[in-house]
Design a protein around this nucleic acid. Structure first.
Lengths: 203, 203
DNA sequence: GTCTATATTGTGATAGAC
DNA sequence: GTCTATCACAATATAGAC
């Protein structure tokens, strides 16, 4: 039946997602994916033809799940600073729920840009027009310093995502061998990132 | 002679550095390293025994070159905000001079933590006692908000490094297909990062 | 020190039986 | 749809000649 066929396909995709996120496309092994759900490599070929096809599908879904709706809080009606806080909350929630996802996406974009950039670009089919206009108005009313939406988004993403993507680097630099020590630093950051961004804008 | 032996060793290390930074340990090929300097793979075995040994040596040098002296501006005498600005300048200089280095280190730490974390920890043999004391004094004099040195360093690293490590992600998100457009965003950031950090501390 | 040649294992892909 | 068996080749490691 079509349902059985679809189930098996989904099962492979799920196992592939785990393997690719953990190992990257270069380190991932089709054998490991097959083993994990108790089928043979031939099944992967049957449903996806090649490892690269399977990777592309995983990367597409990973990108979509990370990006979809991410900027929505900025596009709703409401006061500027409230919206920024809601956006930061949502971004940190996503990072917290899937701590490896952002690192996977950034790294595969770095190492295999040819393959991944078009897929990621496609997933980033989102708008920021409301937010851009609101920033401009606030700046011309002298409520905030004159900044571009691009730099606001870079700042917020950097402050939120790097502690996850660069976790190992920061743990070494700050000498936090204990993971709980580092996690409590992360917990403190939610309000701290909001302060950092708002203070910067409010000047 | 010992010098010739040492030269060839260095030559292999240099080629390996390029290959490993570009491909990571999983994607790197010993054949590619050998080809690049016109020797055979047997040479690599002669000087380093295994690919993993060679990688460890490359990662050790990469970590040291990134970390050594990095926090020095914070440990010198002088006013707090000047020191922070000098630190940000130096960090961005290093990222600019070697845009792939931070991404390499963060990713190998994520993917091969068992191997890399001890090496990186060893490279991070640095002090921040002067800076920590200065932050504490400024906070008790109400010159700045009460913050820990750890969070200051996380904020600065995030704001400086993520635009390089997560370049592909941000380019997609901001729809900058043109690399020059993205580079000019990076150029604007040097002063902007300083503002962001100082405004946050000054409250 | 450096190379050629080869051992050994791993890895993605696929043909063909059921 | 699923498996067994196998191909073709890539990759690291290494022995042995020079």
């Amino acid at each position: 039946m079509a349902d059985i066929k679809n189930d098996r396909r989904q099962e492979i995709l799920q196992a592939a997602r785990n393997e690719f996120i953990k190992e990257g496309i270069s380190g991932a092994r089709t054998q490991a994916i097959a083993d994990h759900i108790g089928v043979t490599k031939a099944m992967i070929h049957y449903y996806f033809k090649t490892k690269e096809n399977l990777f592309k599908e995983v990367f597409r879904q990973a990108s979509k799940s990370f990006i979809d709706g991410l900027l929505d809080p900025l596009e709703r009606e409401g006061p500027l600073f409230k919206k920024i806080e809601a956006f930061i909350d949502q971004l940190i929630n996503r990072l917290e729920n899937n701590p490896e996802l952002a690192g996977f996406i950034t790294n595969e974009l770095r190492r295999h840009n040819e393959i991944t950039a078009p897929i990621f670009r496609d997933a980033c089919n989102i708008e920021t027009t409301v937010f851009a206009r609101q920033l401009e108005e606030a700046a011309s009313d002298y409520e905030i310093a004159p900044v571009t939406p691009d730099q606001v988004i870079i700042n917020i993403f950097s402050l939120c995502a790097f502690p996850y993507v660069g976790r190992g680097l920061l743990k070494g630099l700050l000498k936090k061998q204990n993971s709980q020590q580092y996690q409590s630093l992360l917990n403190e950051r939610r309000e701290m990132v909001k302060d950092t961004v708002i203070n910067w804008l409010a000047g």
